[in-house]
């Protein structure tokens, strides 16, 4: 085989191989998660259990694992190739003292652009599509929900419930019902971050932003923390989501209508 043809074929082979490995890894990953999730893809995973409320938080973990596997495979491929080249082409006594890297033919040069471009783009679009599916989940709020107004300020989270009940730094919610926060700020930027529910969004003066999550287990508490630098005491701007049973919640809610409840 002539040399140029060999380079060309070699290039194509490596590119296709790496593309194949990425695709295979992605497929293996989804099928592995399939058994666990009972679905076939992120879409099906999120839609599983028609009629039941599903929330984005487990979807986040799912997509995170998928993306981490994807980038780990790419990273290891590149690292192995680099390590192999470094070892294989190190200068040895008596060996060549100059390199003999190939001059690529036009076809090979173009191939080395087009093929990797398509491989990378395939992976990009695969990730983007999944990201978009999960994104829609995050932004479409179920109709049946508890809607709470949040006003953030230096340095507290002030919640107002539909019946006028107010709390500070304690977001009291019933288990099993989606909670929608409509957020604004009376001074600087803040970001209402609940790590356990994998969600945050900035609040600011002049605009209303929102986020939602699904508290699952009664009796649990979840840290709320401020994720956007808002001033001197930024790192102390914390609160808790307190999840009650629907009955407990109702009792509390009915008792506190239009009163103000303060706590630290």
């Amino acid at each position: 085989m002539n040399r140029k043809l060999k380079h060309w074929a070699g290039s194509a082979l490596i590119a296709l191989l790496s593309g194949g490995v990425i695709a295979a890894a992605a497929a293996a990953q989804s099928s592995e998660a399939v058994s666990e999730a009972g679905g076939k893809s992120l879409v099906q995973y999120l839609q599983k259990g028609e009629g039941r409320i599903t929330d984005p938080a487990p979807g986040w973990d799912y997509l995170w694992t998928e993306v981490i596997i994807d980038i780990t495979v790419i990273g290891i491929l590149f690292a192995l190739m680099t390590a192999y080249f470094i070892w294989r082409y190190r200068r040895v006594p008596g060996g060549p003292t100059v390199g003999s890297g190939p001059t690529l033919s036009t076809a090979a040069a173009v191939g080395w652009v087009v093929i990797p471009t398509f491989v990378f783009m395939a992976d990009d679009f695969f990730i983007a599509a999944n990201g978009w599916v999960l994104w829609n989940k995050y932004r479409d709020v179920p109709a049946e929900r508890l809607e709470v107004q949040l006003e953030s300020g230096m340095y507290s989270w002030d919640y107002t419930y539909p019946n006028g009940a107010r709390t500070q730094n304690e977001l009291i919610v019933p288990a099993g019902k989606p909670v929608l926060l409509r957020m604004t700020s009376r001074d600087t930027l803040h970001s209402h971050f609940i790590p356990d529910f994998r969600v945050k969004e900035d609040s600011m003066p002049g605009r209303v932003t929102y986020l939602w999550f699904l508290p699952r287990e009664a009796g649990k508490e979840h840290v709320i923390t401020c994720a956007e630098y808002c001033g001197v005491m930024h790192s102390y701007m914390a609160g808790r989501v307190i999840v009650k049973t629907p009955e407990e919640f109702k009792a509390w809610y009915d008792a506190t209508g239009d009163s103000t409840r303060k706590s630290s």
């Binding site: 082409y89 200068r91 060549p96 890297g101 190939p102």
Partner: peptide, 9 residues
């Protein structure tokens, strides 16, 4: 990485 290929490193 390709620049390492067939080099004398």
């Amino acid at each position: 990485v390709g620049t390492l290929y067939k080099g004398s490193i």
